[in-house]
């Protein structure tokens, strides 16, 4: 990419979408998990991806930071293609280093937290800014302490993940992602592995983040959260976007029988 085509402004100021997907396909062997996804996520937007398991919503989320490779179609974040570079009309795969660079600006929170068990909560949050961004340790430490305080864990700085509850671990994971000052946050079923009474504390942190204007894509089964926090809800089914729109429309007046059935099933829990 030459200098004059490089994005000079981020999506937040340019009016271009933060995430843009056009006809995104993904195969696992013969199984076509994504069958042409077209989506746009605007800066500061909170989008909730809902749908039955196996509908491809997690896979789509993982494509956005190139944990999965897109097999067909186009996917770009903040104007830059994910995993590829376009030279003329040819696509070139990005080097590992370039992929890693792109991921620095995209935070991800996993269903199973994936905290580094050999580091304290503070160590988990400080690791990437120091080792990846090479920021001075003192600054990072101050910011990490602030972030952990923000997620309500200022008394757990020195605790190892094994000493924390699931909800606390997931809040550390959110702080860890935020420490890289991402422009986009991806949440992959962040509360699905939690005991019911711990779900609230994590959702509260996420709600706080949303009201701060963070661009967020959240794969979730928490309909209450989706209803209250999402700007837009996207219902995926069998690898395609079946319905999309503001919560009031999608959840109150589902257009398809499939979504009606889904809401009913999830609502029972």
């Amino acid at each position: 990419m030459s200098a004059d085509t490089a994005p000079l402004a981020t999506a937040a100021t340019s009016g271009r979408p933060m995430v843009e997907a056009q006809g995104v396909h993904k195969w696992f062997g013969k199984l076509e998990v994504l069958q042409g996804i077209d989506l746009e996520v605007q800066p500061r937007e909170v989008m909730c991806l809902i749908g039955p398991s196996g509908s491809g919503k997690s896979t789509f989320l993982r494509c956005i930071n190139h944990l999965e490779k897109v097999d067909a179609g186009r996917l770009s974040v903040d104007g830059a293609l994910v995993g590829y570079r376009e030279v003329g009309n040819k696509l070139h795969e990005l080097r590992d280093r370039e992929v890693a660079k792109a991921r620095q600006d995209i935070g991800m929170v996993f269903q199973r937290f994936n905290l580094f068990p050999h580091m304290t909560a503070l160590g988990n949050v400080m690791e990437a800014p120091i080792k990846v961004r090479r920021e001075p340790k003192g600054e990072v430490r101050a910011r990490a302490e602030q972030l952990l305080e923000r997620v309500g864990l200022s008394d757990k700085l020195a605790s190892y993940p094994a000493q924390l509850s699931g909800g606390q671990q997931q809040r550390v994971a959110i702080a860890r992602a935020l420490a890289m000052k991402p422009k986009l946050m991806l949440f992959d079923e962040p509360t699905s592995a939690l005991d019911p009474e711990l779900v609230g504390e994590v959702l509260e942190v996420m709600r706080d983040l949303a009201s701060d204007g963070m661009t967020m894509i959240v794969v979730t089964h928490e309909m209450g959260f989706a209803r209250r926090v999402a700007d837009r809800i996207v219902f995926m089914d069998q690898g395609v976007v079946a319905e999309a729109g503001p919560p009031s429309t999608v959840l109150e007046n589902p257009a398809t029988a499939r979504l009606r059935q889904f809401i009913q099933q999830v609502g029972e829990h």
Binding site: R103, F110, V132, A177
Partner: peptide, 11 residues
């Protein structure tokens, strides 16, 4: 998941 978490942080 450890590998994925590290990747996602840009390591």
């Amino acid at each position: 998941g450890q590998d994925e978490a590290a990747c996602a942080l840009g390591m």
